[in-house]
């Protein structure tokens, strides 16, 4: 059976080649009347627009960003052009295709799918490290590595547009999150993030804010928000939402967790002026009731601390995050950056 297929393939190949050769021998010239007669643009034009795409010959001074601004109305979408054409940069004379809409939502192909690493930090220190504290030098190295390896840091809104199969994101996308609200976020992480132009999300538990020299103040939280750090919910007291505590009635449990979610959101909105749409579960724990409360109150998604990158088809309320520990070297850090998987389609 295999041989027969092979023979058929060979026959097709030679037949094809024969047609090509005959065509060549016929050596035709180009009658002007046949050329591009239905094109709207003249043949010498530097661009050709057709449904879904635009073909462009790169001109002097063009950049991915300028082309994205011109054709996609968003200079930040240069990555879409780069990813589609499989290039890192452009040079004059290069012929490229600009996709005018997402061409691979969810990063899904029949061979596999994109996954997004969501990094979870807690505390930073000028020098010392422990499990939950990353030194300034390590954090700088990690952010530099993201840049050098071509990763692009995206926001939570972009991530959830990807999860909802609405929009495409860069093929090597990463999300940065930081939990709690320690002052080191303001003093150490922010300058590094600003240097690279990376957005990040700070999940705060509101009881921590304004509690002394180790915690940020609301003024600092607002300043962080003004500098691209999205402030989101991590409850009021950091209680474990997943279980009824000993000696706690079900009604008390419900009232407590509902308050932890809804009031923390209100407090953040009041102090930063920005709405809260995402929650990081304290200790990464949740249950169906918590998810139902989140949905009822307009939350778009929530995060666990289950290690691993997340594909678009993950439950939006049980999104994975990989904790980055203080003792991680760059090799360990890079292991958390998986951007492709195929297990679910095999």
């Amino acid at each position: 059976m295999k041989n027969r297929d092979k023979m058929q393939n060979c026959a097709s190949y030679y037949l094809g080649m024969l047609i090509v050769i005959i065509a060549l021998i016929s050596g035709c010239t180009t009658p002007a009347a046949h050329v591009s007669r239905s094109f709207e643009q003249p043949p010498g034009a530097k661009e050709r627009v057709f449904p879904g795409f635009t073909a462009v010959i790169v001109r002097e001074g063009d950049t991915l960003s300028s082309l994205a601004g011109q054709y996609l109305n968003d200079p930040a979408m240069g990555w879409l052009i780069a990813d589609f054409n499989g290039i890192g940069s452009i040079t004059p004379g290069m012929e490229i295709i600009i996709p005018l809409k997402p061409y691979e939502r969810g990063g899904l192909t029949y061979r596999g799918y994109q996954t997004v690493p969501i990094l979870s930090y807690h505390n930073f220190s000028p020098d010392k490290t422990d499990k939950m504290t990353v030194s300034k030098a390590s954090f700088e190295d990690q952010m530099q590595l993201l840049k050098e390896r071509g990763y692009r840091v995206i926001t939570l809104d972009q991530l959830f547009d990807f999860f909802d199969f609405k929009k495409q994101i860069p093929s090597k996308s990463v999300v940065i999150t930081i939990d709690d609200g320690w002052k080191s976020v303001y003093e150490i992480a922010l300058p590094v993030l600003k240097k690279h132009g990376y957005p990040a999300t700070l999940f705060v538990y509101t009881d921590l804010i304004n509690t002394g020299r180790k915690a940020i103040t609301w003024e600092q939280a607002k300043e962080l928000a003004d500098n691209g750090i999205d402030i989101q919910c991590h409850t009021i007291t950091h209680r474990d939402l997943a279980g009824v505590q000993e000696k706690e009635s079900f009604k008390e449990y419900f009232d407590s967790v509902e308050k932890e979610i809804v009031q923390s959101s209100n407090i953040i909105k009041k102090n930063t002026g920005r709405a809260c749409r995402y929650l990081a579960y304290p200790f990464g724990n949740s249950n169906n009731l918590i998810v139902a409360i989140l949905k009822r109150n307009g939350f778009r998604g929530a995060f666990t601390v289950r290690r691993g990158s997340s594909p678009f088809f993950i439950n939006n309320y049980m999104v994975n995050r990989s904790m980055i520990y203080g003792e991680y070297d760059l090799k360990k850090f890079e292991k958390a950056l998986n951007v492709f998987d195929d297990r679910a389609v095999k």
């Binding site: 505590q245 449990y253 990464g284």
Partner: peptide, 10 residues
């Protein structure tokens, strides 16, 4: 939903 200690480990 389960009854858990005050703070359950992940």
């Amino acid at each position: 939903i389960q009854v858990t200690p005050e703070i359950a480990p992940s």
